[in-house]
């Protein structure tokens, strides 16, 4: 890779650290697996960077690679990505020590598990409905209906939280 390209590549990676981590954790629900997925994604992105013709789509491109890696890990481990009982039990503790800084993880634990990716991609990563539809290979209508469900659930969560703070 040319030095100039390398600089842009590194800058892009740094700008997307949070997005990549939040996307991976929303799918894998496990820090070690998320770390593995990110590691594989970074190497894969580096190897294939020259294939990316439209560099302005770097974020979309790398998140797409990451999503594939995440599903690859799920398939390999034969794990169920949904939150398991032990984590559900821990939720109570997390709620008690609720910290505004960890609001995303908290929301993800509260909403239906099939909505996690959509919420991270739309609200956290700012991808459009069309981009999400392409990334996850699902129809745009499905993205919209899941977003509508997520919106309802998050609204309730925020209201409850506001109530707790005010009460």
């Amino acid at each position: 890779m040319k030095e100039e390209d390398k600089k842009v590549f590194i800058e892009n990676i740094n700008n997307n650290r949070l997005k990549l981590y939040k996307t991976a954790i929303s799918i894998l629900k496990n820090e070690d697996d998320a770390n593995d997925a990110i590691q594989e994604t970074l190497y894969s992105a580096y190897k294939n960077y020259y294939n990316l013709r439209e560099k302005q789509y770097f974020t979309t491109w790398i998140v797409r690679i990451l999503i594939n890696k995440c599903y690859d890990i799920i398939n390999k481990n034969k794990k169920i990505a949904y939150i398991d009982d032990s984590i559900t039990q821990n939720t109570v503790g997390k709620e008690d020590n609720y910290d505004v800084e960890s609001s995303l993880e908290w929301v993800l634990e509260k909403i239906d598990k099939d909505l996690n990716e959509i919420v991270v991609l739309y609200y956290y990563n700012d991808f459009s409905v069309t981009e999400i539809s392409e990334m996850l290979n699902i129809p745009k209508g499905t993205v919209k209906s899941r977003l509508a469900r997520a919106r309802e659930q998050i609204k309730t969560i925020i209201k409850e939280k506001e109530g707790e703070f005010n009460g």
Binding site: K22, N35, I38, Q39, S103, Y123, I154
Partner: peptide
């Protein structure tokens, strides 16, 4: 926008993941 502001206030990345980067 309200939901976005709520969820995107989360800026945490575990140390281990940062080290990977």
């Amino acid at each position: 926008k309200k939901i976005k502001a709520f969820v995107s206030s989360d800026k945490k990345i575990p140390e281990k993941v940062n080290k990977t980067f």
